[in-house]
Amino acid sequence: MCRVEEAIPNPQVLIDAVTTKMPFGKHKGILICDLPVYYLEWMHGKGGFPPGKLGMMLSTVFEIKTNGVGKILDEIKMRVHAARK
């Protein structure tokens, strides 16, 4: 019998995506959550996202935005920034 493990989402990835700025490239300095979809699609098509935490944030934002649920990021961004005031 094959056992499929459930993927447990890590909310910290979303928090990091709304507080971390892109460290390189055309959109350097832009929050990861604010990167345009065309840029994420371009990165994905050029061989994928970089390894590690940055790649996890980029791929998560890519999946959220390309599936039409980008408002989730707006809500998290609003709550995180309000909590920091």
Rank of each mutant, 00 (worst) to 15 (best):
E6S: 13
K21V: 14
N67C: 12
M56K: 10
L31G: 02
C2T: 07
Q12L: 15
L35Q: 04
R84Q: 04
L58H: 00
T20Q: 03
D16F: 14
M22S: 02
E6T: 13
A83R: 05
M56C: 13
R3M: 09
K77C: 10
L58T: 01
I64T: 03
T19R: 05
C33P: 05
I30F: 15
M78R: 05
N10C: 14
M1Q: 04
G52Q: 05
Y38R: 02
R84A: 09
K46A: 13
G68E: 00
L40K: 04
G45Y: 11
V61A: 06
H44I: 08
T66K: 15
K65D: 02
K77W: 12
M43C: 13
I64F: 14
M56W: 11
V4Q: 04
G45E: 03
T60V: 14
R84V: 13
G55E: 02
I76E: 00
P23Y: 14
I8V: 12
I72E: 00
V18R: 01
V61W: 08
F24V: 07
P50D: 00
M56F: 12
L73T: 00
M1W: 14
V37Q: 04
A82T: 04
P36R: 12
V37C: 12
P9H: 06
N67I: 09
F24K: 12
A7F: 15
